[in-house]
Lab assay of single mutants.
Amino acid sequence: TTYYDVLGVKPNATQEELKKAYRKLALKYHPDKNPNEGEKFKQISQAYEVLSDAKKRELYDKGGE
């Protein structure tokens, strides 16, 4: 599973699309609303952290993490 899959976006997604997808999923899986989905929330946050940063995203796209 790639970070793009976690957020449900395509690899060519814009920053705005990433932000929108992250917010939607973060609300859905937030531990306050969904106590059993803490791990999913962490995955979503990690994916967004990497993909929202241009340098980290470039490194990730080249095969790094």
Results as ranks from 00 to 15, higher is better:
Thr14Ala: 04
Pro35Trp: 06
Ile44Ala: 04
Gly63Asn: 13
Lys55Arg: 10
Val50His: 06
Leu27Asp: 14
Lys28Asn: 05
Lys20Gln: 14
Val9Phe: 00
Thr2Gly: 06
Tyr3Gly: 01
Leu7Ala: 00
Val6Gly: 01
Leu51Ser: 00
Lys28Cys: 09
Val9Leu: 07
Val50Met: 05
Asn12Leu: 06
Arg57Cys: 03
Leu7Thr: 00
Asn12Val: 04
Glu16Pro: 06
Glu49Trp: 09
Asn34Asp: 09
Pro11Thr: 09
Gly8Leu: 05
Thr2Lys: 05
Asp32Trp: 09
Val50Lys: 02
Val9Gly: 00
Glu16Tyr: 10
Val50Pro: 00
Lys33Pro: 04
Pro35Gln: 09
Leu18Met: 05
Val9Lys: 01
Tyr29Ser: 03
Leu18His: 00
Gly8His: 07
Tyr29Val: 04
Arg57Trp: 02
Thr1Phe: 14
Tyr4Thr: 01
Leu27Glu: 14
Lys42Ile: 09
Tyr48Ser: 01
Glu65Cys: 14
Tyr48Ala: 01
Lys55Asp: 12
Val50Tyr: 06
His30Ala: 10
Lys24Tyr: 12
Ala47Phe: 01
Glu37Gln: 11
Leu7His: 00
Gln43Ser: 07
Leu7Pro: 00
Leu27Trp: 15
Ser45Cys: 12
Thr2Ala: 07
Glu58Leu: 07
Gln43Pro: 04
Leu51Glu: 00
Ile44Ser: 01
Ser45Trp: 14
Ile44Glu: 00
Arg23Gly: 10
Gly64Glu: 13
Ile44Phe: 04
Ala13Ile: 06
Asp53Ser: 05
Leu27Gly: 09
Ser45Tyr: 12
Thr14Gly: 06
Thr1Pro: 13
Leu27Met: 13
Pro31Asp: 07
Thr14Asn: 07
Ser45Leu: 10
Glu58Phe: 07
Pro35Met: 06
Gly64Asp: 10
Thr14Trp: 01
Ser52Trp: 04
Gln15Val: 15
Asn12Gly: 07
Val6Asp: 05
Lys10Ser: 11
Tyr29His: 06
Gly8Arg: 05
Leu27His: 14
Glu16Leu: 10
Tyr48Cys: 03
Lys55Tyr: 11
Thr2Asn: 12
Pro31Gly: 07
Asp61Cys: 03
Asn36Tyr: 11
Asn36Leu: 12
Glu65Val: 14
Lys42Leu: 10
Tyr22Ala: 02
Lys55Pro: 06
Lys42Glu: 08
Thr2Tyr: 11
Asn36Gln: 13
Ala21Arg: 04
Lys19Val: 11
Tyr29Gln: 01
Gly38Arg: 13
Val6His: 06
Leu51Trp: 00
Asp53Cys: 05
Lys19Cys: 12
Glu39Trp: 11
Lys62Met: 09
Thr1Gly: 13
Gly64Asn: 14
Glu49Lys: 12
Tyr29Asn: 04
Pro31Tyr: 06
Thr2Gln: 05
Ser52Thr: 06
Lys33Phe: 14
Asp61Ser: 03
Ala47Asp: 00
Tyr60Lys: 01
Asn34Arg: 07
Asp53His: 03
Tyr4Pro: 00
Arg23Val: 14
Ile44Arg: 00
Glu37Lys: 07
Leu25Ala: 05
Gly38Asn: 13
Val6Cys: 06
